[in-house]
Structures are given as C-alpha cells and as structure tokens.
Nucleic acid binder design. Structure first.
Lengths: 226, 226
DNA sequence: CCTGTGTGATTTGTATACAATAGACATTGA
DNA sequence: TCAATGTCTATTGTATACAAATCACACAGG
C-alpha cells in the first residue's frame, strides 16, 4: 500500500467507482499522475492493472478511457458470475466447517440488522455482502476461481445502483443467504450451487430493472457533461 | 508487434513455453532486458502481463519467477476450463450458423489428417485444436468469457506434455470433436455442454497420467539445471 | 555449533528526459 | 463548399539515472 503504484491504483480506481470519473472519460497519464501525486511510471502500471480488470479500456492507439458497459455486457458478466459463484458455493458446501459456518451466520445477521431499520444502511449491507461472498470463496479453496471472480465482481456500475435497490430486494437477498446457510449446513453442494446461481441471476434482473428506470436520467447526465 | 514491450512479452513468454526458462527460474528485469534487446521499462510491463496470465509469479518482495504448478493447481485449472468451455459450447450451439459449422468441420478434418499418418504430427494437431476451440469461443459471442478463458488456456506445462499423448488420446479427442459437431448441427446447447465438459475433464486425466509417468524424469531434469 | 546482526551487492521502484506517434486544426487547392 | 495535406500539439513509448528495498554472506557472540 505504501508504494506509489498502489496509491495510483487505489486513487484511479476510487475515482472511477465513486463516479468522479464517469464512463467514457479520457485517462491521460500525465493528468492522473498529477492528481495522484506520483509520476507517470506508477500510473502506467496502475492503468494496466485496471485494464486487466476491465475497469479501463484502451483504444488501438493506446489511449485509456473509463470503461463504459452496455447492458448486454453487464448481462454477460452476471451470467458468468452466476456460474462461477455457483461453482464456488458447491465447493464451499463440500468443504464447509463449523467455524466458517458460524462466521457466515454472523455475517448474514449483520446484513439483517443493516436492512431492518427504518432507513436501510446500504453501505453496511454491501460490506456484509462482500464479507459473506468472500468467506464462501475462501473455503471453496480454489485460488484460480478466486482470481477469475476477482475480475468480474466489484463492477462500479453495480455498486452504485445497489443504492437504488428497494426494501424488497434487500430482504430477499438476506433470505437467500439464509437458504444458502441451510445448504451449507447439510453440505449439499448441488443445492448450494442452485441457490447461489439463482441469487446472482436475480440480482441481475434487479439491476436491469433499476437501470432501465434510470437510463434516461443517465443519458441526460452524460449529455450535460459532454 | 513493433513495440518493444510486445517484443519483451513475446520473448519472455517464448522462453517460458519452450522450457528454456524452467519452472521456478528467477526473472531479473535487467537480465531479461538484455536478452530481449530492450530496456527495463517494457520488460516490467511484459512481466505484469505474464503475471496476470499466471505464467509468472512474484514473491511478496516483488521478485519474479517462472510459475511452477502443482498437480492440484493444474487440476483446479482444468476443472474451471471444463466449466467455462462447456458454457462456451452451449452458447456456441445456440448461436451456430452454417459458415462456422463448415469451418469447424474443416478444422477437425485437418486434425484427423494430422494424426492419421504413421507418425502423428503433434504440432499440426495442437494448431488444429487451437483453431477449433477458438472458433467455438468466437461464436459463443461473450468477450468476457473469452477473456476469462484466455487466462486459463495455453498452460505451457500442458502444451509440452501434449507431445506425450498416445495415439489413443489423439483419436479420442478427434472423435469427441465430431460428436460436438453433431450437437452443434442440432443446436443442442445442453448436449454440447456435456460433451465439451467431458472432453476437457478427460484431457486432464490424460495429462495427469502422462505427468505421473514423467515426473521422475522431470525431477531429474530440474536437478540437472539447478 | 547455532543464531543474530550488519554490510555489501543485487534487484526493484520511481522520476524524468527524450523520441515516436496519433489527433486536431488550419490552410490550400479544386 | 469540400477534400486533401501539412504542421503543430498532446499523448504515449522507451531509456536511463537514482533511490529504496531486499538478499546473501560473513562475522561476532552466545
């Protein structure tokens, strides 16, 4: 974390995820270097990493831009996530132990608390979700799978729209986690796979619905910036 | 191809795949720069790309080495490939057209020719295989899936041991491709998925068997280099 | 004999200068 | 007016110098 290339990576990534740099924004190396307080060399390295994670795109003439995702591409990502996380859940169920099961239960209880109040705490919900899924990934014990999913999860566009989830979606997500826990407790890999796959696919449709409602706003906003 | 960073990438990658740089060999930036005729800057970029493809590993102190794979890790990779290529085959079947089907048939005929002679032409077999699978990936029309598989296929260790495949494995691979063609012709995604998944899983066991037979030789060879 | 420590050599991280290349824009000619 | 072309600017690619970190090994102390 102390290295300049990490600062550049965190900085640029943060600006993309927060929306400070909107989709399609040009990413000049010099400008980024200034804004991160480092030289171009670590910025270049950060850009390559972000490109590998598909948060950044490069034209054939090597200019970098904030990646801009079509709904088709996003569906594509969710489809793959559904498959891979389903697989992770299957492996996790087969390898489940009491300690991890306890931590998963605890994590989902925190999610329950976060969404039970009058005004749901979305950030706490997202953080709990992150922990829940990463516990599963850990016990699935497949570094390669972890690495593949790493390039698919944490889509900024998804993160941002999670704030538009309704109470219903949040509650349903929490219930699906509970069902997953039941499958884990019984070490039933096939069951866990099915629930997780459905969980992710449902998340896509929740996203798509929210996005369609937002799309006209987004387009206006983008025109205003251009 | 004309850029120095590409020369460095191709050069280092070639040395790893050919075995000139064996698994575990240290990859000093200066030495690589000299051997590729470029400066350290493009070498660094090439190393990061190769690290993302998991052909190169870095210690926590940032020193790079040629990745060395345990059998468990290789099984892990094959398991994921089986799932992802199965998925690709399913999508390909659903989107199949006559032109692609023709190219796939032609490609598998070339594979048949390559292995029908007295002495099978392994390089032609591998090249035909590569084309066959990449045609499927193309028509599957999922850039993200292509990118995920890109980081799993082309394991040097697999490439090298393909030369130890027996006539039986080569013939069986050819037949399985034919069955895949039948599934494609009928646009039966589920069937295509099953065949492809089995095809890859079988390939793993062929590899594992060959590897176990070879392991003592490999270890001797590695000791000789050290 | 083993362990811990310090020093020198090696290696990587970063900044910067310069070269090459792509993009923008204006000028010129039809 | 439109198109082609040349120049000028902005951006990326590469090399290199220097700083920081790490490793290897010798040496002292227990």
């Amino acid at each position: 974390m102390s290295r300049a290339s990490d600062r550049a990576y965190e900085g640029i990534r943060g600006m993309i995820i927060s929306g400070e740099l909107p989709a399609g924004a040009p990413l000049g190396e010099e400008a980024l270097a200034d804004s991160c307080g480092v030289s171009r060399t670590p910025v270049r390295e950060a850009l390559r990493r972000l490109e590998a994670e598909m948060l950044v795109r490069r034209t054939e003439s090597q200019r970098s831009f904030v990646a801009d995702w079509s709904l088709d591409e996003i569906e594509d990502v969710f489809e793959l996530r559904a498959m891979l996380e389903g697989h992770a859940a299957r492996r996790a169920a087969e390898r489940m132990d009491q300690a991890t099961l306890g931590k998963l239960r605890e994590s989902n209880e925190r999610i329950g608390t976060a969404i039970s109040g009058q005004e749901p705490d979305i950030d706490a919900f997202l953080e709990g979700n992150r922990i829940f899924h990463s516990l599963i990934l850990d016990i699935a014990s497949s570094p390669r799978l972890t690495s593949l999913l790493g390039s698919l999860i944490e889509q900024p566009v998804v993160w941002r729209t999670a704030h538009h989830y309704g109470r219903e979606e949040l509650r349903r997500s929490h219930r699906e986690h509970d069902e997953l826990l039941a499958a884990f407790a019984r070490r039933d890999g096939g069951w866990a796979d099915s629930i997780m796959t459905g969980h992710i696919r449902r998340a896509f449709h929740a996203y798509a619905d929210a996005h369609r409602g937002l799309s006209s706003i987004d387009r206006t906003r983008q025109r205003a910036k251009a």
